[in-house]
Design a protein around this nucleic acid. Structure first.
Length: 436
DNA sequence: AGTGTCTGCCCC
DNA sequence: ATTCTGC
DNA sequence: GCAGAATGGGCAGACACT
């Protein structure tokens, strides 16, 4: 209770001098705690209480504590996405109230998520007939329209004010509904994700940025219509209702879609999406229900296969949590025109724990200089780095950065003189469809 | 007033 | 976002 | 197959410092 009170005060501190105030509050709290308590408090704050206990286990705990069916708890959690509230309902109303829980208009629910497809044919192998849909590179949004219209992001941020043109066009519609879709920056053709970020969570100068970053909303699902929840009916029926309910306007479109059981047709559809500058395709099971917050094989995503570059490691850092004692975070450089090494990305993922451990020893041997938890190392280890695309960067001196970087493999066979240069990054960038 | 640094139930 | 790991 | 953990770039905003 004491700790909670302090946390509350800390989180509520705002304005000038608030950093000092927060710091003073924390010092006060730590002073009153025993060493063991202090350790736990710090780990809680830094998010390092990693004991493999997250929401799944909490659902089980609620089920046991209040003697209610686990599946009912999971279902209520899925629909409400608030474990505290679920616990309260379970305690007060038991299974009876728990089973009455349903989605409500005006209250955001979690989005259904997709998994990566192995290849373009996976959906057809799994479902027979599959729904192919363009995949749009923007921000996932959920639109609630009853008397008023509200637009929420994946983490339930309210971005209604940021998407006024969408709101205006929707207000003509006579129905009440919840829609699921993706907003992307669009002017004649799809623009870069970075551009959308400049607009989406702005608080000031909204009209100005709205002019600079025109958007489109692509709607692909409907979860609620005129008083009825639609999440338990098959996707193909939801799509039919969506098409009947929503008329396309200047800034609001239905997601491009096709149903097929032919891999070749799916492939063609994908090629078309990419050639028009879209990110790829979604492949969905026509019979699937909408499962809020679930990532599963009912929805698959397929994107262009990643590019790769050979880069050299120039710096390494200690990681966090279970990686606190290994050098797990690497900075990669490419060569510029003058032969200098310029950093273009960092990455950890792609290596197994075992490899990281071995590399830790290796990097310690070739370390040149230590800067806190960071080591500058002799540039000699060449690594193949995969990435989704190249972005213009304002932090990297080369002016370019990699999006979604990950380590593919270590090139023990290559030397520093064989790595790629900035020129190659530039060329790859110029070849991309979406540059701005 | 301008610059630097850090944070986010952030977006991907 | 991506990737690896333990169950 | 699933959940959990550890990590990427970049944006606006908030605050600190000068």
């Amino acid at each position: 209770r004491e700790v909670h009170r302090f946390f509350d005060l800390i989180s509520k501190a705002r304005g000038e001098g608030s950093t000092k105030k927060k710091s003073a509050l924390l010092i006060g709290l730590l002073n009153r705690a025993s060493p063991e308590e202090a350790k736990l408090i710090i780990k809680t704050i830094t998010g390092e209480t990693r004991f493999g206990f997250k929401e799944g286990l909490m659902e089980e705990a609620i089920s046991k504590a209040f003697g209610v069916d686990l599946e009912l708890v999971r279902r209520a959690h899925m629909l409400l996405s608030d474990l505290g509230e679920v616990a309260l309902i379970a305690k007060k109303g038991g299974e009876k109230e728990l089973s009455k829980v349903s989605i409500k208009i005006g209250r955001p629910i979690k989005h259904m998520l997709a998994e990566m497809a192995e290849d373009i044919g996976e959906g057809i192998r799994r479902y027979g007939k599959a729904i192919f849909e363009y995949k749009y590179d923007g921000a996932r949004v959920e639109i609630h329209k009853s008397k008023e219209i509200r637009i929420f992001t994946r983490k339930f941020e309210d971005v209604t004010k940021n998407l006024q043109e969408v709101v205006e066009e929707l207000s003509e519609n006579p129905h009440e509904f919840i829609l699921d879709g993706e907003v992307i920056p669009f002017h004649r053709s799809p623009k870069s994700f970075q551009l959308l970020m400049r607009r989406l969570r702005r608080k000031y100068g909204l009209e100005d940025i709205a002019k600079k970053v025109p958007v489109r909303l692509y709607v692909f699902d409907i979860l609620w219509l005129d008083g009825k929840s639609l999440i338990d009916i098959p996707l193909r029926e939801r799509r039919e209702l969506l098409e009947k309910t929503l008329s396309q306007t200047k800034h609001i479109k239905l997601a491009e879609q096709m149903v097929t059981s032919s891999k070749e047709e799916g492939e063609k559809f994908y090629m078309k999406a990419v050639s028009e500058g879209f990110e790829g395709v979604m492949i969905k099971d026509p019979n699937s229900r909408y499962l809020p917050g679930k990532r599963g094989k009912h929805w698959l995503k397929f994107k262009q296969k990643p590019e790769s570059l050979d880069l050299v490691v120039i710096a390494v850092e200690y990681g966090h949590g279970k990686r606190a004692n290994v050098l797990s975070d690497y900075t990669f450089a490419a060569r510029d025109k003058n032969g200098e090494l310029l950093p273009v990305a960092k990455a950890y993922c792609g290596l197994t724990d075992e490899e990281i451990e071995e590399l830790t020893e290796y990097f310690k041997r070739i370390a040149i200089k230590r800067e806190g938890r960071r080591f500058i190392v002799k540039p000699e280890l060449v690594v193949e780095v995969k990435f989704g695309e190249i972005m213009k960067s304002s932090v990297y001196p080369s002016g370019y950065a990699l999006r979604f970087p990950r380590i593919e493999r270590i090139r023990w066979d290559k030397g520093v003189d064989e790595i790629d240069d900035i020129n190659k990054l530039e060329k790859l960038f110029e070849m991309q469809k979406r540059k701005v």
